[in-house]
Amino acid sequence: MKDLSYYKEIIKEKLSKKRFEHSLRVAETALEMAKSRGLDEEQVHLAALLHDYAKDLPSDELLRIGRKKGIILYKAEEVQPDLLHGPVGAWLLKQELEITDEAVLQAIRYHTTGHYPMTELDKIIYLADLLEPGRTYEGIASLRAICAENIDKGLLFAFDSTLRYVLERKMLIHPLTVEARNWLLLQLHDNFNDE
């Protein structure tokens, strides 16, 4: 794998200034969250830095790549193409930058929808994207507080918040988010019963 500074320069050129700065903050947040979790810091840093690799692509380009490469698996992705920036980004990173670390690609692929079962890396990238210091939305203080206590409970709060947001706007719910939430809820329930 190339030095992280190489990837930083790539995304600096590829993304808007605002998106680039967001990516740097996500990387800082993810590294901080990963400290006590025994994760490979290089994987965490790379996945966080590159998570929005395809975010600035226009919807028609996301759809074109998604259709051509068989990446679109759900109707929600056709109707709301922004949901494709994770899966398309993972595919492009493999093709264009020759990223082959499947754990990194998976965390990028699912950083918007979640999936199950989620690895610790998947959880960190999903949450760091929502928690980075530049984010200011209703409920972020609660999410930060919960994540400081328990990452899994924070992830459940994040899924619930996402579902409320989508329902209020009459948007399609991505099936992977529902499956990820149900899987996590069962994990938390099982852990609670084991105590």
Rank of each mutant, 00 (worst) to 15 (best):
N150L: 03
S16I: 11
L172A: 03
L131Q: 06
T100D: 15
D82H: 15
R37M: 07
D101V: 11
L105E: 01
T177C: 02
D82C: 15
T136R: 15
Y116S: 07
D194Q: 15
R109A: 12
F20M: 06
E42D: 12
D52S: 14
H111V: 09
D52T: 01
H174M: 13
A180V: 11
Q187H: 09
A141N: 14
Y74A: 11
G134E: 12
S161M: 04
I108F: 04
E102A: 04
E13H: 10
F20R: 14
L62D: 00
K14W: 11
L163G: 08
S16C: 12
W183C: 09
T100C: 08
D60P: 03
A48Q: 12
Y53G: 06
H85T: 12
L46V: 06
E132T: 04
N193I: 10
I99L: 13
L121W: 00
E28H: 08
D56E: 05
A107I: 01
G38C: 05
M171G: 13
I72K: 05
L167W: 09
E41K: 14
L155G: 02
R181W: 05
I151S: 00
H111D: 00
T113A: 02
Y6A: 10
T112N: 15
H45I: 00
S5G: 02
T112W: 07
L50F: 09
L92G: 09
G114P: 04
E42M: 09
L130R: 09
L155H: 03
L105I: 07
R135C: 05
Y126D: 03
H111I: 11
I151C: 06
I146H: 04
A27P: 09
E78K: 08
H22T: 01
A47N: 07
R144I: 07
L172S: 02
D194L: 01
D3C: 13
N191P: 07
D190M: 08
T162V: 14
K35F: 02
R109D: 11
A30E: 05
L83Y: 15
S36G: 15
R37L: 15
L155K: 00
L50M: 07
E132M: 03
M33H: 02
E13Y: 13
K170T: 10
A34I: 13
L121C: 01
R169V: 09
D190N: 08
L84Y: 08
